[in-house]
Design a binder for these strands. Structure first.
Length: 296
DNA sequence: GACCAGGCATCAA
DNA sequence: TTGATGCATGGT
């Protein structure tokens, strides 16, 4: 996991870095706001910043950033302190994971912003990934704030994801008509309200276990077992969280259970066989299953 | 036109 | 506690 950090003008280069493939990281379903560019690089908006990520040979080039932001934001966001070789080695005791890991060898689990994850995964319920992305983009454009970028970066407009205050003032009807969130409109506004008023402090979840965090998150409208696990895994570093969606259900039934079951049984089975690394196993399996259409 | 999508809320048993 | 059903919306 050793790599060299090189600072250039508006760029940070991670030289000879392993376990970092932009396509795998940004298209494995954990994040909804990474946009692929013509040169195969990816651009996103996070923590109030716009950043572009490009892979060139064994290097990763982070553009429109600097060393200070890298140290304060991106090092943690990209989970660069974690040893993915160790995780892969442990999970590779399972022959099925060997295949899934080979397929998505460059996956990392990002540390994303809590409120954005809450609303994004409420939006994901009984929805399709391309439509989820579109709704999130529309919510950002209409209820987020425009981010100033250097003119010579791309010339496009970028918007931050809305704050809880911003979304709490939205009307559910507008979220439906303008942002195409359907029946999830009421849940989004109600949840934004609860968080904006401080009735639930998301930051407290950093210090809770998966089970404790799950119990708290599930008090929010629109947050159930699967959505809460996604929030815990993608925002709060709860690596033992094992979100079970239609794809994980399919891939688990296909390779492990060999029969038609239910999501609750799959959740407990995943926790039992993958343990503290269940979240990583889930991401490798999800990407593998969805890209190849396994079990469909 | 039925069926499905990174499920959840609700209600019956 | 578990199982069935409706839900907005848009694409097959």
């Amino acid at each position: 996991m050793k790599y060299t950090i090189i600072e250039e003008k508006d760029k940070i280069i991670l030289k000879d870095i392993k376990n970092f493939n932009p396509k795998h990281i940004f298209e494995c379903g954990q994040a909804f706001r990474w946009y692929v560019e013509e040169d195969k690089s990816y651009t996103t908006i996070a923590y109030g910043k716009v950043i572009n990520v490009k892979k060139e040979n064994n290097d990763i080039i982070l553009s429109n950033t600097n060393l200070q932001d890298f140290n304060n934001i991106w090092y943690h966001y990209f989970d660069l302190g974690r040893d993915y070789d160790e995780i892969k080695k442990e999970l590779s005791k399972d022959p099925i994971l060997v295949e899934a890991i080979e397929f998505g060898e460059g996956i990392r689990i990002l540390n994303q912003e809590p409120f954005e994850m809450v609303i994004s995964f409420i939006t994901s319920a009984n929805n399709q990934i391309p439509r989820i992305k579109k709704s999130i983009e529309l919510m950002s454009k209409h209820y987020g704030e425009k981010i100033k970028t250097d003119e010579n970066f791309s010339g496009l407009e970028y918007y931050s994801f809305p704050t809880s205050e911003g979304l709490s003032k939205a009307r559910p009807e507008d979220l439906k008509e303008v942002c195409k969130v359907g029946f999830r409109g009421e849940r989004i506004v109600e949840t934004a309200n609860i968080i904006a008023k401080g009735e639930l402090d998301l930051n407290s979840i950093y210090n809770l276990t998966r089970d404790e965090g799950k119990e708290l998150l599930m008090t929010l409208p629109g947050v159930g077992p699967k959505v809460s696990d996604c929030i815990l895994l993608f925002a709060f570093n709860k690596d033992d969280a094992f979100p079970v969606d239609v794809w994980v259900k399919r891939v688990m039934e296909h390779f492990y259970l060999k029969e038609d079951t239910n999501v609750k049984l799959i959740g407990s089975h995943g926790a039992r066989i993958f343990g503290r690394l269940a979240g990583f196993a889930q991401q490798y399996l999800f990407y593998y299953a969805r890209e190849l259409g396994i079990g469909k």
